[in-house]
Design a protein around this nucleic acid. Sequence first.
DNA 1: GCAAGGTC
Length: 786
Amino acid sequence: MYLIVTEKETAAKRIAAILAENKVKKVRYPKLGVETYEFAYGGHERTVVMGLSGHVVGIDFPKEYNNWQKNSAKDLIDADIIVTTTNKKIVTALKVIGKDADLVTIATDYDREGELIGVEALSLIQSVNPKVKFNRALYSAITPKDITHAFENLTTVNFNLADAGHSREVIDLVWGASLTRYISLCAGRLGKLFLSVGRVQSPTLALIVEREKEREAFVPVDYWEIEATLETKKKESFVSEYHLNRIFEKEVAERIFKNVIVGGFAKVAAVEAKERKEKPPIPFNTTEFYVAANAIGISVNNAKRMYQTLYEAGYLSYPRTDSTIYPESLELRSLIEMFIGTEFEVYAKKLLKQKTLTPTQGKKEDPAHPPIHPVAPAKRSDMKEDEWKVYELVVRRFLATFAGEAEWHTLRVNIDINEAENKEEFKVNGSRLTDEGWRWYYPYNKPEDRLLPPLSEGDVLKVTHKEFYEKETQPPSRYGQGRLIRLMDDLGLGTKATRADIINKLISRYYIHGNPLQPTKMAYAVVDTLEQYTPTIVKPEMTKRLEEDMDKISEGKIKEGDVLAESREMLNIIFEDLEKNSEDIAKSLQSGLLEDKIVGKCQLCDSDLIIRKSKKGSRFIGCSGYPDCSYSLPLPRTGQVVVTDKMCDEHKMAKIKIITEGKRPWEFGCPACNFNDWERQKEEADKKGQTMIPFGEAVKKAQARAKAKSKSETPETLSDIKGLGEASLKKLNDAKVETIEDLAAANTEKLAKKTGISVKNLDKWKEAANAAKAAKATKEESDSNE
DNA sequence: GCAAGGTC
């Protein structure tokens, strides 16, 4: 029997379909709980393709190290490492099926982890079938061309490459587990609240902490901006601004403002017209997809989840790839042709009419998987609304990579207000999209046209209005999830498959929260401690160094054992230093922990108000001046209490957020406001002789009311949409567009033709309709969460 | 209860 092992089930199915000379038989092993694909191939009467599920074995320390207190964290450095089964079903099946194999082809992904996964599978087979022969198939895309080529050119298993992957596993475990244990024990944070440390998560956390520190250290500088509204002879007006965007001296700003006289005159000093070309975007890899999805309001988590659903349903290609270059074996033309007969037909047809189909390409190649692209056509009704958004994004991006450049006509106009010594230089920039090019296919975040009336040098203008703005420079902004993922990619932190998970991990460990992301004080304390005693683990350089070592291992230049020995030696030295300073480390970690609990100052005695636990285990806000002062406020019973940086102006107290895993954060707000509200309600209830519902419930109801109120501000019917008047409403109704949902689903170009309303207006209204629908959906979702 | 990497 000939056994082919792939990294995942879908690959097994598709490879079988390509290789099979006749029909493929799907074989179920009910006792094992797996499915294989069997057929005749290349002289092997019985060929079996079986899919794994990524790593089916892992590594860990022996059981006796499980007790955190019994073994010192340092003991983990040189502890034995054992292989553990992480997917029992597949491991068992692999042994049962592998026992009968004469030949095994490892057909896992074409990358380092793929090689390791392959060797893991091979070892399992060899444990029951030591004499089995084996080889390796390498392919970059599951296309007939690539797969046939791979199986006609089978090669050898690269054990050095697998060793490199294995060294990564060991180093991550040893460093991560020992430092996690050490820091947690030091801070006295055991059980669910342990403090984690790792080669990828800690540098990522440090990025967020560093950014927050920059924000804190930022000193804002005052500046001023001045605008003047000008009018042409034909009474067309536009807004111009002082030629320096920011004026940093108040006297100068005041002088300029005084010199701009409403009713006075200005002159066009110069007009510079230019054409600007904009290149079409590169194909999506995982990172770029997350960034784009994030930019249209889909969180990285949701983007990941929905993409996975669409991948499993067969609409989109494999989700985890670094590649931004389509491989040659991908049949791009037929991928475009498949949209004929769908709502993307106009786009597909236009592309197919082009003389050549030359896609853009980025710089990154990934031998394991092609860039993200659609693999099957779909209708809106085939999937959920948000999934369609993801699908549409991928389709439009794919199509746009074949389209032409967009062209902008830009204008830079210099304007002199007044003459001679009173002259003040103003400017205005205009831009107009003259050739949509790829932006027709991919209309996301399209800059608005900034239209100007016709202006030529020497034109005389009238000043009709002026505006004086007092502003201050802003600190660098916090990272959003998309931006953080891109930054991690740039720094080599994590992989396409893990970056989103790493961010989730930092959130669930209460290190970071919010959107954009901000760190807790605990995160500061952990990062500061690590930076001082083991700077290696908080820097992307550790990953870089590991990559270099792994390259050398895979090239056979050094042995895995040597790399591991050196790594352990380094860690031992770090631990000597750590253990010498345990007391200081404990203190600084505990003060970070305390700071996260400070909510504000007590109104009665001016001591710190902190989050405390009662003897029964329930939480409350209490005064640190206790027992002299007994001021206190209640808190909800469950969920992690997070002190945000937003303050209640009335009570000078930080607003509170409650985080429960799997639910969206609950903006609890000011604890004093909350309590006052509840007391008021209680009084009323007492008057009526009713029993008051408990505090937590009351707060939740108030939340629900606030949400219902915010909903009424979003349009519910077409006539609620801003700018949509009665005449247009009638035209829309005539075209059978009667509800928000109808409009959201409409093809605006077709609708424009039918109704005579401009596409631009329709697009604007459609956007509002979509936003209303989305708001409704989020509301429903969050309601069901509560 | 520890990491990061696959996959679902």
